[in-house]
């Protein structure tokens, strides 16, 4: 179940547009803020709030890269795999991350701390390799820097 506050925020978003559907991506992001991912139950709830069928909403939800329809960890790592970062050593960083986290791309660590996902160009190609962890951007990565970053997120308790 969504919280009343979340429902209220979604309703408010919907009022910005002539057609409530226009707020649907925003609404899904509100769900993800609170729950990290969009479960079937949440999907149906949001669909109801926006006067859409679950199908219509899921059609949109599954189209976009950053709407998660499966559970993700506490921190989602989006590792840029586009061309400039690839030239600058993406494959090393990726291999390093996989070893450190013990997961493949698309997987979540056993402790639920991290989900590792590949991501298209993050728009910081002059300072690659780059990745985002949650909403923080990290650039000019090398293995040490990755270890240090992971360490930081490991420690922070869930907000």
């Amino acid at each position: 179940m969504l919280t009343e506050q979340e429902r209220e925020r979604i309703r408010a978003e919907a009022t910005h547009y002539d057609y409530p559907q226009a707020a649907c991506v925003e609404a899904l992001k509100i769900v993800q803020e609170g729950h990290r991912w969009v479960s079937d139950e949440h999907l149906k709830e949001v669909a109801g709030l926006l006067d859409m069928s679950p199908e219509a909403l899921d059609s949109v939800a599954t189209f976009y890269n950053l709407i998660f329809r499966k559970p993700v960890g506490e921190n989602v790592i989006l590792l840029c795999d586009s061309v400039s970062c690839w030239i600058l050593g993406y494959e090393n960083i990726c291999a390093h991350l996989k070893t450190r986290l013990g997961v493949e791309l698309g997987e979540t660590t056993a402790d639920g701390k991290f989900t590792l996902l590949p991501m298209a160009c993050l728009g910081t190609c002059d300072r690659g390799p780059a990745m985002m962890v949650g909403s923080d951007l990290h650039r000019n990565l090398d293995n040490e820097k990755v270890d240090e970053i992971l360490g930081r997120y490991r420690q922070t308790p869930e907000a």
Binding site: D40, L43, S53, P54, E55, A56, D58, S59, T62
Partner: peptide, 19 residues
Amino acid sequence: GKDLDAFASHNHVYFGRHE
């Protein structure tokens, strides 16, 4: 109809119901 739609993208587009 409301309960049939296109899901996902690129060459994984799927046509069906939500469940």
